[in-house]
Design a protein around this nucleic acid. Structure first.
Lengths: 350, 350
DNA sequence: CTGAAAGCGCTTACAG
DNA sequence: CTGAAAGCGCTTACAG
């Protein structure tokens, strides 16, 4: 009796293997392998017998096992390291990569790093140990030199959103500096001369580039350079709201705001509404967001194109996998200025 | 010369294997395996030699190969099938699952199905062929019976967001009916008797449940049952906006709207703003969204908790993987009614 | 404490 | 057209 096994201890029927299918169909495992892989040169009668056995046993090929022996050893999976899967920018990039990968029957392993360098390395290592065919990475660490070994081992790498440090590699970026510059130029066109900069953590390269664009435009337009109007290291809505309130209540408030990132923009709007200044102080945000159109005033933004970023990155990766061994490429995606109202509020007439 | 290989043809150094490490360290592969897996009973001197070789060769264990032979054969990866990685609900669920999986060093394979039944099956099959340890699925198909084989093979399954059909299995759902009922009761409390239902595709189970909750509340409060005020099959912002405009311009317009889903809510707001009725017609939406707080009026919603849904689903899955073989469990997560203004607009005094 | 042999599920490289 | 043998990179089950 006990030979039949305790159902609680062995509740499962193990998965059928090539060998099981071969036994049931009365052929060798090699013949089954031929049928599974659609190779020709198998008698129709045997093909039928094998197919029948596959169906009866619900056979599922083990792709890890086949990749192990197969020449080239592709796993048909790529790894994607993102800042935070729950944020709209990351998830839009991911989705676009998925769509390209899907056309090639390639699966995606993914994870979030939350600005944590160690997590970036841990994730990359975990993906590598699964022998992914390639990696798309939004880097957070200050040095990506540790990835040199992956490249040498033949795993193509494409960086997105941020430039990698210490490693020449493909990457796809937004024109952060240009976009920020456009924002300030636009506000200056409207007549503003006192434009505050509300920025994310200074360690983030994109934040640095956006500040550089702000700075450049201020120079180009001869705007007064007022460090009291430069607020850095805002990483949450609450941070941004608090900082904006303080700025607008100061003795020397700006007449316009440039918010260098999504959450900062939302924080700034929260503050403006709280002070009743949303129709008085101009605002341009970096990054578009759903509903920018429904707020009052509607929010003018410098839009990135995360889906395009993902698509281009995936296409680049697959080109590498298809054998393109050319030098590293850098793709800079232009931003789009979308004027909806908040950025067109003029400065108060004195 | 040509023996050294053409750099364009063989540009990469193959990854080191256990055998390479063993050769360099002057031990057997079994000893290297012991060191890599942290087994004890290896001379410190050999451990040191092995570690040195691992570092020099930048050895990365091939976890697929080890899983192949290892008893139990866990791959430390789970598969996650979601509606659309780019939508905030899906990505919040994913992120929460990631956080739980991360504690166990488990990786996530994921993909979007976009309401496509075939895609659901294709994705599940692809994950299964990679021998994921478990699956979390937001089902779209009308029948999940095809998954019986996975369960029998010992792959635990947890459904999220929607009940599976034709298969008893663990699942984690929002209280869709209860939440919709709450929305209508709230509007009735404010004084409304003509409350329109704006719903998603009728084939979607959650949409059906929300309509059922709407219906039940109408009965409970003795509200007139007016099919002209029930609009189904709205799946995009544009659809919802058009339908809302038509409804409000009709001879017999409702005084309040219940929007059964995020995009529909946004479409309804677009329409209300377009008609200048946002402060006249009440609105409650199902699903919270960032910025509901910044719109005017602020938007009252029935909030789900996607992060909790993901966390609970992942915990359930890992309990199963840890050996819990009890009967299928169903977890229903309560919704939260958040009153912000739009749902508290009273009906016009006659 | 250490390692040689067998085997995981599959494909490759042959031989017939 | 078909299959037996060897091998992918690793672990298991032994023997010493």
């Amino acid at each position: 009796m006990s030979q039949h096994g305790d159902p609680a201890a062995t509740p499962y029927r193990p998965r059928a293997t090539l060998r099981d299918v071969a036994a049931m169909a009365g052929v060798s495992i090699k013949t089954v392998s031929r049928v599974v892989n659609g190779e020709n040169g198998v008698t129709p009668a045997k093909v039928a017998a094998v197919r029948r056995a596959i169906r009866q046993l619900d056979y599922r090929p083990n792709v890890s096992a086949s990749a192990l022996r197969r020449a080239g050893g592709r796993t048909s999976a790529i790894g994607m390291v993102l800042e935070d899967l729950a944020n709209p920018f990351s998830s839009a990039v991911l989705r676009a990569v998925e769509d390209v990968a899907n056309e090639r029957q390639v699966l995606i392993l993914t994870g979030s790093v939350d600005e944590d360098q160690d997590r970036e390395r841990t994730l990359v290592r975990a993906f590598t140990e699964r022998r992914v065919d390639g990696l798309i990475i939004a880097p957070v660490g200050e040095d990506q030199g540790y990835l040199r070994a992956e490249i040498e081992a033949g795993t193509p790498l494409v960086f997105v959103d941020r430039l990698p440090q210490g490693l020449p590699a493909d990457c796809v970026l937004s024109d952060n500096e240009g976009g920020a510059r456009d924002a300030v130029h636009h506000l200056a066109d409207v007549g503003h001369r006192h434009i505050a900069y509300l920025g994310d953590l200074r360690i983030i390269p994109t934040a640095q580039q956006r500040f550089a664009g702000y700075q450049r435009a201020c120079l180009e337009r001869g705007l007064p350079w007022n460090p009291a109007h430069h607020v850095h290291d805002l990483h949450t809505v609450a941070d941004a709201a608090t900082a904006t309130v303080r700025l607008l209540r100061s003795a020397d408030p700006p007449t316009a705001l440039f918010a260098s990132q999504n959450l900062v923009t939302i924080g700034a709007i929260t503050a403006l509404q709280q002070l009743g200044l949303e129709d008085t102080v101009a605002l341009v945000g970096f990054d578009d967001f759903l509903m920018a159109d429904l707020l009052k005033p509607r929010v003018s933004v410098i839009a990135q194109d995360p889906r395009r970023m993902g698509r281009v990155a995936a296409e680049l990766l697959f080109q590498r996998l298809d054998g393109d061994h050319g030098g590293p490429r850098r793709v800079v995606l232009p931003t789009t200025t979308i004027l909806r109202g908040s950025g067109e509020i003029p400065p108060p007439a004195i």
